[in-house]
Computed example of a mutant assay.
Amino acid sequence: MNIVFSTTRQWNPGDEFILMGCINLLSQHIGDFNPIIYNRNPQTRRARKFDIIKAIDNKLGKDFVEKFLDNSVKDRLPMDYADMVVFAGSPEWRGRRMTKLYSSILEHKLPTVFLGLGTSGKFTFTDENFTENEQDVFRKALLVTTRDKDTKEGLAPIEAHHIPCPALFSSKESRVVKTVKKIGLMYGTDSAVACNNVSSKTYQYMIEVYNKILRDFGSDYEIEFVSHYIDELSPFKDDFKKEKIRYSYDAKDYLDIYNRYDLVIGYRVHGIGISASMGIPGIMISHDERSTTVKGFLADMVNVGTEYDELHTLIRDTIENIEQKSRAIQAHKEETRDTYLSLFKNTIPT
């Protein structure tokens, strides 16, 4: 089978963690298949309301001005090779960037699956929020799952299932963490590009609590930082001159990066998710509505602005109960896997 996955490549590693989980889950149900991506990277697939370059190309009927050379689904070539389309999570599963994909699904009558849909706010399944094509595809979908309750409620006319995000399956292997030796802290800034940055309030809060964590836990545990986006590497040198940070351009490398740690703390929802997939407990620093996704990873959560003493106590309690928490994550992962595979069996042909 040729399965087209809606995702991003070289943009937000979290999207690719979700993709990895979707592929691992579907492989258990379907077996081997060819993964193809519909790349929503904004550098590759722009979403401008008025795009002069695209208008010229549309008039000429070919990519005359701007070449589409990305190794992914092209706008002008038919998707007649596809056997199924899978929307692999992420809040961006509708809108201008997705127009080509929805029209192709309808044109070629492709079976469609939505896995782990999330949102950053409430909405309704109406003409105000969905195009006619989007509504048509949703109504014909084989399966729809959501990772938060707001999305499930927004899709009320559709039979949607609220299940933890597929990123919980981004790693095929997991381990029981019996003691904490290394802690990973997720670093972010307010100066990175939009959608990969955080607010100044969140940034200042993380800098403050991370310095206190280094002070209070640095002598007993090895602590490193993790970066998901290249814009974070330069400011890190100013913020934490003596500390070590790990980063890779390749999302799959984060399986090895996060597997170094016995506890992870930070603001990246799917940094918590990929860690949980390996049995590693996490503490989420919540900075927007999407943070509730980590409940599906059994992570603890504190809000930006939480007093440090409360966070300190939570870290200490997590360290003391790390094996219990790790085993709970593994049991939760297996139970969730069974739920997904049961839904697949009833909805997705092999």
Score class of each variant (00 low, 15 high):
S6I: 09
R9K: 15
R9P: 04
N12S: 11
L19G: 06
L19R: 05
G21P: 01
N24C: 10
L25K: 09
Q28N: 10
D32N: 14
I37K: 02
I37G: 02
Y38A: 01
R40P: 01
R40C: 08
N41V: 11
I53L: 13
K54W: 11
I56K: 09
F64R: 13
F64S: 07
E66W: 13
F68C: 11
S72P: 03
S72A: 14
K74T: 10
R76N: 12
D80Q: 09
M84N: 09
V85Y: 01
E92K: 04
R94A: 02
R97Q: 07
S104T: 03
L106R: 15
K109I: 01
G116A: 07
G118T: 00
F125N: 00
T126A: 00
D127P: 01
N129Q: 08
V137G: 06
D148W: 04
K149R: 12
T151S: 11
A156Y: 04
I163E: 04
P164T: 06
A167Q: 03
A167E: 06
L168D: 02
K172V: 08
K172C: 05
S174N: 15
K178F: 11
K178M: 11
T179Y: 10
G184A: 06
G188Y: 06
D190V: 09
S191Y: 02
C195I: 10
S200P: 10
Y205C: 02
I207Y: 11
E208N: 12
Y210L: 09
L214I: 07
D220A: 13
I223S: 01
E224R: 06
S227N: 06
H228S: 12
D231N: 12
K237S: 12
K237Y: 09
S248P: 04
K252A: 12
Y254P: 04
I257D: 03
I257V: 15
I257P: 07
Y261I: 07
R268C: 00
R268A: 08
V269H: 03
V269W: 00
G279F: 11
P281G: 02
I285Y: 01
I285Q: 01
H287N: 14
H287G: 05
R290P: 03
S291M: 13
T293G: 02
T293L: 07
K295N: 15
T306F: 02
D309V: 14
I315R: 04
R316K: 15
T318M: 14
I319A: 13
E320Y: 11
Q324W: 09
I329F: 13
A331G: 12
S342H: 15
F344T: 08
K345I: 05
